[in-house]
């Protein structure tokens, strides 16, 4: 499998994603510069990593969304390719309209950098096939703008299509108010598109994907991707 890790000016989790794909999963990976206009058939999965693309100017992801590479990302997604947006990558996917809704400033106004618990709401996606429905994962978040918002109609659609993939929860899986770090509507931490091939999530699976870091929960996301790609014979 070959992963493309898209680098925007200001991406800063690209190296961690590359490390996980190359050294933990032992798969192929390339950095893809944001000026790239054509990706051909090189990649089975694209990762939009975290960071502060274009300094978060205007709105998070608002300018990166118009980088030349994004047209190729949109084409790749339309053809069913797997796209994973993490943190700023999620924000870019929202701005690009590849996922519905938007994020605004955390309700506490603080940049939050700590572990949170996530409940897997849908284990039937290419990104969560190695998880159980209802399983609780512990992953770190690191963001100032992660407060997910969607209007009531969009929210109802997300719920009825089972596009909410992760929700912030307490360690035992309960959706308590204190467990929602940023004020996201319906505790939403990650969503996929209706076709299930595009996932955006605020927490960072690449930061907890190997035992030496004390937590391997994030590896389940990457293992799921590999299983899904192997399953469809790519």
């Amino acid at each position: 499998m070959r992963f493309g890790i898209v680098r925007f000016p200001g991406s800063n989790c690209d190296g961690d994603c590359y490390h996980v794909v190359k050294e933990v999963l032992r798969e192929e990976a390339d950095f893809v510069w944001h000026k790239e206009e054509a990706l051909g058939q090189r990649y089975q999965c694209l990762i939009l990593p975290g960071g502060f693309s274009y300094g978060d100017y205007l709105r998070t992801g608002a300018i990166a969304r118009f980088s030349p590479v994004m047209r190729a990302v949109e084409r790749f997604a339309k053809e069913g390719g797997l796209v994973l947006g993490i943190c700023n990558g999620f924000q870019i996917l929202l701005e690009a309209g590849l996922l519905p809704g938007a994020v605004v400033r955390n309700r506490t106004l603080q940049f939050i950098c700590r572990d949170v618990h996530l409940r897997v709401e849908n284990a039937e996606t290419p990104f969560t096939g190695s998880c159980r429905k209802g399983e609780v994962l512990r992953l770190p978040i690191a963001h100032g703008d992660g407060n997910y918002f969607a209007d009531p109609e969009t929210l109802a659609e997300l719920e009825s299509n089972r596009q909410v993939v992760f929700r912030y929860c307490a360690p035992e899986g309960d959706l308590t108010e204190e467990a929602n770090p940023n004020g996201s509507v319906s505790h939403i931490a990650g969503i996929c598109n209706a076709e299930r091939n595009v996932l955006g999530m605020m927490p960072h699976p690449e930061r907890c994907a190997e035992a030496i870091l004390g937590n391997e929960d994030g590896r389940k996301i990457f293992a799921s991707i590999l299983n899904a790609l192997a399953g469809c014979g790519v």
């Binding site: 205007l58 608002a62 300018i63 701005e95 809704g101 938007a102 605004v104 918002f149 969607a150 209007d151």
Partner: peptide, 8 residues
């Protein structure tokens, strides 16, 4: 297209 996000 850019300066405002009509979602929010």
């Amino acid at each position: 297209r850019l300066l405002a996000n009509p979602v929010i």
